[in-house]
Design a protein around this nucleic acid. Structure first.
Lengths: 344, 344
DNA sequence: CTGTTAGCGCTTTCAC
DNA sequence: GTGAAAGCGCTAACAG
């Protein structure tokens, strides 16, 4: 079997390897590798021969072999809970775009569709160089820590943890500004709708709500617990209509909640913002289509994704993890659901 | 260097390999592989030793090595143009969920963020067993054909092509039904807004619009060319308001178009559906929040993604490509923007 | 500028 | 039930 590589025998296009290409071009596999990787200089004539052979055989390299040899997967993993709503999609787009610039593939794992997410994440670790996980993807903290021992990890919008790098959007100050804005419209019974315990994002938004009250010497109410879903929004609106709550303003943990509440209220004849101001968080597409336009906060979601990909890449490159969470600024988007007059 | 594997020397946890695990457990690498893959039966005692070693060393297998050995990537590629709007996100969720069930990783490529998509796709082919590409991802047909020669490919909602398997949602009949519905409200100057040449989806929707007119012995108008964007919708609405077009009904190629048109019209004082009926396509979230609710068509997007993943897997498994495109049914969602009375 | 030759880490016969 | 050994296809010294 001397120099004869097994694979060189069968030049079936589907099985073209670097050996068949080398044979076909009359060069060594090293040369083929060189022209394909463009690292070293190769004589133009040889180069062409190789390229022709590649073309004729329709050679598609086996990524796994390269990865094994270079000891890098050249891929980043991203773990998200799901993709409904514009938030995660935008994040993913930012992540993918930056990863592409860095010549990294992205392999995606959605935990909501998994029965065994721990296994999924372990499996993911197997084929990427680094992993970004979204905070609320509900990955157990110890799993994250375990991963971290093996590969760079960055947590997006998640609980701050010891040695784990984190990136997030600013929540507290914008929430304070938003709540302040509503209060300054003269509202005095503003309710926060959402669950501060569901994660740091919401917790900080609630903290901002609290701070705005404190700033004005006002007393804030307990949060009205609700998940970030249309269903919970409708349910709460129903209870509100039934008189279970009393409020002249609603600060909702996100836009979906705000929108479903607002629509339900309006359909029942309530005037928004006349009877009740409603504000959200995220600035989803719908926020500008509804009437009144929803006052909300825009997050730099795309940038957040890009930042995560960036950090992953640098960590893989040997940089050491930052000890502080990186905070991206958010921006208040004032429309009219807060009680502001329409600009005409 | 005898039997001593280089890697076995350094048992640094970050570099744990099957060799270090074997050493640590006092067994051969074959045995480690066996317990990890669970293929063959291993004595329970040995099994435990191995598992303990894995645990202690924090062993994370190298996927590339396995892929190389088994000659499979155990991953599917998905090529989408982008992720804005719920359509692609939903498709991706369906794809990912099914791929997960089939134990396949998914590596994602978004072409809109790429300067050299051909390179991106070639690169993708390198690390997956099969690829699904979305029709409008603007992958040149010959590239697809080239890929096809090497790996299974399925085109989602794309131009039908010779040997390439395709999956899509039904467009023509639902469009015919939708257009018919509008016409049966007595509208006689219904315009189609969208570009039939932009792809098979829109082409078929326009064909349905035409058919509905034909069914009723009515003459249909030429399509009003517009891309599927909010901006194009607003621009068209402006022209309409300026009197450049005359219409009492608008059948828009998708919801985004419909929504931006409807909102612009309403903000200018027009009554929808009184003056003008407006219908869309896709049933995005906003469609049910606007007033009047947007009449549209719901596509089984999730299922479409799942179907693509399914087919990919079966093609990888050796099944031969189907020669006919698989069509998933769509469903008319009637709300009130078409002129129907609200159900109260 | 090009060829030879070790591996990269894992799976999988084939013996024992 | 377990070990030895031969690859999987590619990269990267190291010679020449």
């Amino acid at each position: 079997m001397a120099k004869q590589h097994p694979a060189s025998a069968e030049a079936r296009s589907a099985g073209a390897t670097i050996y068949s290409v080398a044979d076909h071009a009359g060069v060594s596999i090293a040369t083929v590798s060189r022209v394909l990787q463009g690292a070293t200089v190769v004589a133009e004539a040889t180069r062409q021969k190789v390229l022709t052979a590649v073309e004729e055989l329709g050679y598609v390299p086996t990524g796994a072999a390269r990865s094994l040899a270079v000891r890098h997967h050249e891929a980043h993993g991203l773990v998200l809970p799901e993709l409904s709503g514009p938030y995660y999609a935008e994040l993913l787009m930012g992540f993918e775009a930056r990863a592409a610039e860095l010549a990294q593939s992205v392999v995606l794992v959605l935990t909501n569709s998994r029965t065994d997410m721990a296994a999924a994440v372990r499996q993911l670790a197997t084929r990427v160089d680094a992993i970004a996980v979204f905070g609320s993807a509900a990955i157990p903290a110890d799993l994250v820590r375990l991963l971290r021992a093996k590969k760079p990890v960055v947590v997006i919008a998640g609980e701050p943890q010891d040695g784990i790098e984190a990136v997030a959007a600013e929540n507290r100050e914008s929430a304070r500004e938003l709540a302040g804005h509503v209060l300054d419209h003269g509202r005095r019974r503003a309710l926060f709708v959402g669950d501060p315990d569901s994660g740091p994002d919401i917790r900080n938004r609630y903290a901002g709500y609290l701070a705005a009250h404190r700033d004005r010497g006002l007393k804030a109410a307990e949060p009205v617990l609700a998940r970030l879903s249309e269903a919970d929004g409708t349910a709460f609106a129903q209870r509100l209509l039934a008189g279970e709550h009393e409020a002249d303003a609603l600060m909702c943990a996100n836009d979906e909640l705000a929108l479903s509440i607002m629509t339900t209220l309006q359909d029942a004849g309530r005037d928004v913002p006349g009877d009740l101001a409603v504000v959200g968080w995220d600035d989803v597409m719908t926020a500008r289509y509804v009437r009144p336009g929803l006052t909300t906060v825009r997050q730099p979601v795309h940038e957040l994704g890009a930042l995560a990909a960036d950090r992953l890449h640098e960590l893989v490159g040997g940089e050491s993890p930052r000890t502080y969470a990186q905070m991206l600024p958010t921006r208040l988007v004032v429309r009219t659901s807060c009680g502001c007059l329409p600009v005409t």
